[in-house]
């Protein structure tokens, strides 16, 4: 005889199996209908993996300077050549992937998430609170995001964590706007009234009823913003206001001293730029495909 407990476990396993199958089916459909998005997904996975296992696949210490080997073109010992200090470019590109992925995911994770939560709060509470919050967002949006990040990073000083905070902050305003718009329509649903009637607290309604129903736009927003965050990090580091040297940030590779050696070894300028471009392209394509799949208004186009 099967006890209630065992039955429960069996149904849980079955439910999980269903979920896995549904995920697999969704993935297969995604691959079939979104060839460019799939390419983007592959690039994303690739760069994340490179970022994670970087220290195992680089060929030299990324910061190791061997002046005797400086300014080489691509060859068998240095696949991508070397820079003006004789550092192996391939190893630095690999190390840069880690920085880019790290900055992108953390800044989106903090900025977009915080902005989204503020937007939910603002839209659900409404009234004067909403008005005040929206005026602050107006003020933040009165300034280009990249310049906001620039000013903040200059106030905080250079550093990996500071770049993350700066980019996160610059992303908040648009996240607040978008989530507010979504929640204004979600909160009109009957189930929101129903849970209010049975005495659920506003916090519970926001987190358990509104948040899950506003999840798709959040994921779309976050995935679309990832490429932008990588670009912003690269731009800040390029200006010398981002991740400080000798860290192998892709933007930093192109800046300052390095740029004066580019005529003698153009590869120094080509590889980091191509790395930025391919990764941003991958994240953008994946984000766009995700939006096509999830945003019902765009479906079937």
């Amino acid at each position: 005889m099967i006890g209630p407990r065992a039955l429960n476990q069996a149904s849980v396993t079955a439910a999980m199996g269903q979920r896995v199958a549904r995920f697999g089916g969704g993935l297969a459909r995604f691959v079939r209908t979104q060839p460019l998005g799939t390419f983007g997904l592959v690039v994303c996975i690739l760069v994340i993996v490179v970022g994670l296992i970087g220290p195992w696949i680089d060929r030299y210490e990324p910061d190791l300077a061997t002046p005797a080997d400086r300014l080489q073109g691509p060859n068998a010992t240095h696949w991508f050549g070397t820079d003006h200090l004789g550092r192996d470019l391939y190893s630095r590109i690999v190390a840069g992937a880690r920085i880019s992925v790290y900055v992108a995911f953390f800044s989106i994770g903090i900025g977009t998430t915080a902005g989204y939560l503020v937007g939910i709060f603002s839209a659900y509470i409404g009234g004067k609170t909403d008005l005040v919050i929206q005026r602050f967002i107006d003020a933040m949006q009165a300034f280009p995001a990249i310049l906001t990040a620039l000013i903040i990073v200059s106030a905080l000083g250079a550093g990996l964590d500071k770049v993350i905070i700066a980019i996160a902050f610059s992303l908040m305003a648009s996240a607040v706007r978008i989530s507010r718009g979504v929640v204004l329509s979600v909160k009109e649903n009957v189930y929101v009234d129903a849970s209010r009637v049975i005495g659920a607290s506003p916090l519970r309604i926001m987190l358990r009823h509104i948040l899950p129903n506003a999840m798709a736009p959040y994921l779309i927003l976050a995935s679309v913003a990832l490429g932008g965050a990588i670009l912003t990090e690269a731009s800040l580091s390029f200006l010398g206001l981002g991740v400080p040297p000798p860290a192998a940030s892709w933007g930093g590779e192109l800046s300052g001293n390095a740029s004066s050696f580019m005529l003698s070894n153009p590869w120094m300028a080509i590889f980091p730029g191509v790395a930025i471009m391919v990764v941003v392209l991958g994240f953008n394509l994946f984000g766009d495909a995700l939006r096509d799949v999830w945003d019902p208004r765009l479906r079937g186009r």
Partner: peptide, 20 residues
């Protein structure tokens, strides 16, 4: 899509390099 992903400062560097 290409120009949306290429950072402006890098395109600028490439143009300067190619020009030179």
């Amino acid at each position: 899509i290409f120009f949306l992903a290429a950072p402006g400062f890098w395109v600028a560097l490439m143009v300067i390099l190619a020009g030179a």
